[in-house]
């Protein structure tokens, strides 16, 4: 195992975060705060409690997931896309590193960064609403699992993208709608049929439901199913990345 290489990539990627501190950390925190002000405090005060949870507290897990997903994807995709774009990827490709080590460096850094953001958002939320965490270990596990899984997914997007537009397309056109429709702002039980059944095809539903369960002990779908679905998606990403390195897709000719 080339630990020095993993460390080098990790430090390099984290350095980018510190260099762009405003965009990296301040902006997701600011945008989440705005959600809390608008939905949690302003509108939320006129919405009744859902399953006994005040609306402001109810949306915390969903909002956290929203940031976690988009941050993980954008960090990881940019992290690998940028060296491809500038040409510096030659150094990584010619170095004595295995694909696993490359992933540990890039995905590890992207996931760390989104975890930091997740924790900061959680702390920010405290300023607006009271909440409790019923199953802290599960909460941390979901947080970790989601950050890693979607950083892997972001890595795939970063490899696939051959221009800056493609880098944005998946997060904008797929992830954001899926998160909004995945029960970030409502319980899917509030939906009439057939929308409720259709929603079950949205993988983000399982992430948010499981995550919300770790906070309040309430869930739209069983927590085992949530965990299972997250692991399935993670396995899919790992399989895709394995294929990328085996074939050299968009990395090597």
């Amino acid at each position: 195992m080339n630990l020095y290489a993993i460390r080098a990539i990790y430090i390099f990627e984290m350095a980018r975060t510190w260099r762009t501190l405003m965009e990296s950390i301040a902006s997701p925190i600011l945008s989440t705060s705005l959600y809390f002000v608008v939905f949690g405090t302003a509108i939320g005060s006129r919405i009744g409690a859902i399953d006994g949870i005040s609306y402001g507290a109810f949306i915390i897990p969903g909002l956290l997931m929203l940031s976690l997903l988009s941050e993980s994807i954008s960090n990881a995709s940019f992290g690998i896309y940028f060296p491809k774009f500038t040409g510096t990827i030659y150094e990584v490709l010619s170095a004595p590193i295995s694909p696993v080590e490359i992933i540990l460096g890039y995905v590890g850094a992207a996931a760390s960064k989104s975890l930091v953001i997740g924790v900061l958002i959680l702390a920010t939320a405290r300023l607006f609403v009271d909440y409790e965490i019923a199953h802290p270990l599960w909460m941390i596990s979901f947080l970790l699992l989601t950050a890693v899984t979607f950083s892997l997914f972001g890595f795939v997007i970063g490899i696939w993208a051959d221009d800056f537009q493609k880098l944005q397309i998946i997060p904008m056109l797929v992830i954001t709608p899926l998160t909004f429709l995945g029960g970030a702002f409502y319980s899917i039980d509030m939906l009439p049929e057939p929308w409720r059944t259709m929603t079950l095809f949205n993988p983000v539903v399982y992430l948010i439901s499981g995550f919300r369960w770790s906070f309040y002990g309430i869930a739209d779908v069983s927590v085992t199913v949530s965990l299972g679905m997250t692991l399935v998606f993670m396995a899919l990403c790992v399989a895709t990345i394995a294929w990328i390195f085996r074939t050299g897709y968009r990395l090597k000719t």
Binding site: N2, Y4, I11, F12, A15, T86, T88, P96
Partner: peptide, 22 residues
């Protein structure tokens, strides 16, 4: 092809690390 916003020292350290050297 260089990481434009890195410093010379940092990019040297990065390269050395990639090749598995302390």
């Amino acid at each position: 092809a260089t990481a434009a916003f890195e410093t010379v020292a940092a990019t040297m350290q990065f390269s050395r690390g990639l090749f598995g050297k302390p």
